[in-house]
Design a protein around this nucleic acid. Structure first.
Lengths: 218, 218
DNA sequence: TAGATTGTTAATCGATTAACAATC
DNA sequence: TAGATTGTTAATCGATTAACAATC
């Protein structure tokens, strides 16, 4: 589950932005020349009106009776999500989750490159995750400066998450993807996206429970 | 990032439900006897009015001039999220991410137990993740029946995700937590929660980009 | 031309915020 | 009692849905 702590600065509404990403993925999977809102609707479970409304936030326009030019749409969404230019990120915490993220395919495909992995466990430092050596925390500053990193991923236990966040911020990080189940305290100009793994499962559990109860009452 | 494919059956609005989970976590971290909406607001970045409004979906009531009884609230939220009774889930796909999830602490704390891990890679079958042996797909049916599993986690590559989903559904699974970046086609009575790792990072990227542009214009 | 599909405006829906009376 | 904090109603805001004219 993803939460947003900062809510200003939003030009495209967040729900629309999320759907645009869904459309983007879909457009990358098909090879038609044109696609209509009706067809996308059937495949993605979003109403055609919604899709057309969402596209009004883009420059690309559709042709009546034909639909939207796939390649044009794809290009504009590539641009919107900055797929072309690589964004360099660092990751702190080389536990199971950290390793999984470094190994996650698809990041590169979306222009995201993990340039370094940090940990404070001496046992881990020097070892490799993929082809990245695990670095000690004291190298943080140097790496951030050198690669002009703006985004940091926090995969440490919740006890040390705030501390790591502070360290990232003092070294110039402006965006944090936080996997630790705590709400981080950060200045207003820093974006934090919380990824709470447990929340998702709790939501599933909750809806299934609700459904059972509903069935009982019928 | 989490998306919901099924939207019926919702008694508590989803935004409220998400915040209730935030409150729940907070209540587990403090040891006051009473807590006011004002104090929670300061710690969680949610307005006090919002918090009080959210609590109207619960039975627990606050005392004017005192606040909410922490223990009572905690208990009711425990109940709401089914923390007490264990939910058994299975996981398909013993890659890096799958392993990370099996090792994720906190699941048990929230009454979630991964009872089995499946993979179709002969190399992996028989090996262990934590203390769970990786099982072949043909054992799926048996395990689901035996443990009365209702939720399945899909951590396989996107190419085989739909196939795995079908298999889960024919064996009675009613909820899927999907880590593969594809939209799964499922019957209406099945809940799917999509966890798209890339979307979160794209969102961060997008907001940072926006901020830069905004600063340029000033 | 007739018909399909877009883009946009208006109506509806739902969630958040504001205001304030109730009350401990 | 006076004051703080709740619970609830009304007002606002924002997003979705519906309707339909524009147009290829």
């Amino acid at each position: 589950m993803q939460n947003y702590q900062n809510k200003e600065l939003i030009l495209i509404p967040k729900p629309t932005l999320d759907r645009l990403k869904l459309y983007h993925r879909f457009l990358n999977e098909i090879d038609f020349e044109y696609v209509s809102s009706e067809i996308m609707s059937q495949r993605l479970g979003v109403s055609p009106e919604q899709i057309r409304k969402d596209f009004t936030y883009l420059k690309t326009m559709g042709k009546p009776k034909v639909g939207y030019h796939v390649e044009t749409l794809r290009k504009e969404l590539d641009e919107l999500f900055g797929v072309r230019k690589t964004t360099k990120v660092i990751l702190v915490g080389a536990g199971h989750l950290g390793k999984a993220l470094v190994n996650y395919p698809g990041f590169t495909q979306y222009g995201i490159e993990i340039v370094a992995v940090f940990d404070n466990d001496k046992e881990k430092i020097g070892k490799f995750v993929n082809d990245l050596a695990i670095l000690p925390m004291r190298d943080l500053r140097r790496v951030i400066k050198r690669f002009e990193v703006e985004i940091g991923i926090i995969c440490v236990p919740k006890e040390s998450a705030q501390q790591v966040a502070n360290l990232l911020l003092t070294n110039g990080i402006k965006g944090i993807w936080n996997f630790a189940p705590v709400r981080l305290l950060v200045p207003d100009d820093v974006f934090v996206v919380d990824e709470d793994m447990i929340q998702s499962l709790l939501t599933l559990k909750h809806y299934l429970e609700l459904k059972k109860q509903k069935e009982k009452h019928e």
